[in-house]
Structure formats: C-alpha cells, structure tokens
Amino acid sequence: MCLAIPAEILELKAAGQALVSVNGIRRVVNTELTPEARPGDYVVLHVGYALGVIDEAEARRTLALLETEGALADPFEDHERAALEAAS
C-alpha cells in the first residue's frame, strides 16, 4: 500500500495530469501535488498520484557521501554478495 515508486515525467498534460514512465510502462497520473514537476524530473508516484519531486542533486550528494565511506570498507563474503544480487 505505501509502496511508492519513482516515475519519470515524459509529458505534461492539461488539468494536473502528466504522462509518466514507470520501469518503461507509460501511464497518465495526477500531478496536482507537484505542479513544479517538469519533463525529465522523477516523482514519487503512489496510487496514481505524484507525491513529491525527487531532487536529482540531493540524490547524487547522498551517493557521493557514501563513496567516502567506501574507502574504509571491509571486504565482504562472496556468498553474501551473491545473495544480495540474487534478491535484487
């Protein structure tokens, strides 16, 4: 129920609607809560409504922060990696 997914805005339509792509599937959704969203933006999509816009710059910043942790990382068991990859 609460599972929301990132969707890419492809085209803005009239009356607070937009055509989006979710994992390659296109559908028209409601964007009245995210009037600032533009084509190319990703939104958090939930039950057919965009709840918020994903900030690409912040997404990169979070990942960059993680890279600095990476320099200190311990090697992991191979089977744990395989399990994680199989699950994803």
Binding site: E8, Y42, I54, L63, E69, D74
Partner: peptide
C-alpha cells in the same frame, strides 16, 4: 532510472553493512 539502480547496488549495500559492523 539512474539513481534507482544505484540505491539498489549490492556493492554499496555491502560497504555500508561493513561500516555498521
């Protein structure tokens, strides 16, 4: 879906788990 795959990346996940450890 660039940032989505990156937030599912197994290497990154292992790295953070190692830091928790």
């Amino acid at each position: 879906m660039k940032h989505l795959t990156e937030y599912r990346d197994a290497d990154r996940a292992r790295m953070i788990a190692a830091a928790i450890g």
